[in-house]
Design a protein around this nucleic acid. Structure first.
Ligand SMILES: [Mn+2]
Ligand SMILES: [Mn+2]
Ligand SMILES: [Zn+2]
Ligand SMILES: [Zn+2]
Lengths: 150, 150
DNA sequence: CAATTACTGATAATGATTATCAATACCATT
DNA sequence: AATGGTATTGATAATCATTATCAGTAATTG
């Protein structure tokens, strides 16, 4: 429950865009906001099946697209894997350390890196709109496990 | 012609892995090394069609995979676009500024950013294997064009 | 309530990449 | 040079996430 600020933004957006307020979208957004970050469409669909009745997976794709459009969600695409989504309201921009063993996403940020990126693009007369820093490797838990198991 | 160093590495690799030396791979590698960076499989296939006879597109996929395995190529995947490949022999690691208007890839690097990334992962006990920094926006040429055209 | 039109869910389509497989080419050995 | 084992090729089918289609349904507005 709650998430009233997010819903206010969403409601404003659908009014502006002449979209309609449907039960399915309500359920999807509620579930999305209550779930772990970096969730896939399939995972969300599975969770919804338990609570609400069936909601078509196409509708979940569509609703997450709307959430991204109104700035309430971000899409994260890694290689050939299926897209993941994270809430973006109330979270600032951050980078990701991604464990290649267990799939964990660690959120991290260094203001100095952000600043140096701005310097970097300036050198090329480039106007940045967005950026993505992903570091792939092994999280500390998986590192320890690997030590034990060999 | 030439590219003898790359070919030496490739030849060493195929001997070790019990792969065979085929005309198709020769042509593909030659064309790959002579082409612009950040090329797609489809583009490479198109170019090869002119010079050599037909080479099956599956063979190009397979050969580029081998090139990546032996460290002579890198795969670059952006969102849902088709994969692009770049030579990696004789080029050091670099980041990409990617123009969303014309598709240009600007290669850039800041040693200070690289260093701060190492600090960042250390804070989380994370062992990095690779990383990817991509900045999306507008290159200077496209920026000027936009100014003129409105 | 009625008219308009956006939405839904089932399903087909798409498109890049990978798997399959029979025919062929490579290569070490004789 | 011929042979045999096996990696490779190219055509094509399969895969799989995502998007498009469309008939039926539901939200909105007056
Ligand atoms: Mn995140
Ligand atoms: Mn590059
Ligand atoms: Zn892990
Ligand atoms: Zn440009």
């Amino acid at each position: 429950m709650e998430h009233s600020e997010v819903k206010a933004i969403y409601n404003k957006y659908i009014r502006e865009k002449n979209l309609r307020d449907t039960k399915q979208r309500e359920f999807i957004i509620e579930e999305f906001l209550s779930s772990k970050k970096h969730i896939t469409v399939e995972e969300l669909h599975g969770q919804l099946e338990k609570r609400t009745g069936n909601i078509g997976i196409a509708t979940i794709y569509r609703t997450l697209k709307v959430m991204c459009e109104c700035g309430l969600a971000n899409e994260i695409k890694l290689g050939r894997e299926k897209a993941r989504y994270e809430q973006s309201f109330g979270y600032e921009h951050h980078d990701h350390l991604i464990c290649e063993k267990c799939g964990k996403f660690i959120e991290a940020k260094d203001e100095r890196i952000e600043k140096l990126q701005k310097e970097l693009v300036k050198k090329y007369g480039f106007s940045p709109r967005a950026h993505k820093l992903e570091i792939y490797g092994l999280c500390s838990a998986c590192k320890q496990k690997r030590r034990k198991d060999g």
